[in-house]
Amino acid sequence: MTIQKILLGFEPRPENLLSALHAINQQFGYISKANCYHVAEYFEMAPPKIYGIITGSEVLRDKPAADLEIQVCDSSFCKSKGSDQIVKEVENLLSIKANYPTSKFNLKTISCLGKCQEGPIMVVNGVIYEKVNPAMVDDILKNYL
């Protein structure tokens, strides 16, 4: 499905912008600069504004996904259960820094997923791991490397 076809599914009204962006994000995995210009032209909005919306969202991406997408919840409950330690462990194992994505790894701290009972929560490439402790991190990541 091309970008034009996706856009034609929406009427060019401001209230449809977010759903259009979600559809593009789902199709391509992220919203590229060229696609941003297409959207801007279709909705008659300025490209910087659309970039602002993309970067303001947790779901929409402005860069292609990394090979390994790791998310660790750092809301209060998971934090009290020691999600900080998990973040540090991942950082040490992959020698990356949280919230500074590289092309290979992307470690992101996210807000609550509503699974506080099972915390701390770690998500690796869309798979949710519950009750993670720092010792488990190595084993989990081994499946993906």
Partner: peptide, 20 residues
């Protein structure tokens, strides 16, 4: 319309699209 607020919280910035 060449600037807009982008990103959130501590990373928020006033920038052009895709930091061009």
């Amino acid at each position: 319309d060449s600037y807009s607020k982008s990103h959130k919280a501590i990373r928020s910035n006033v920038s052009t699209e895709y930091l061009t």
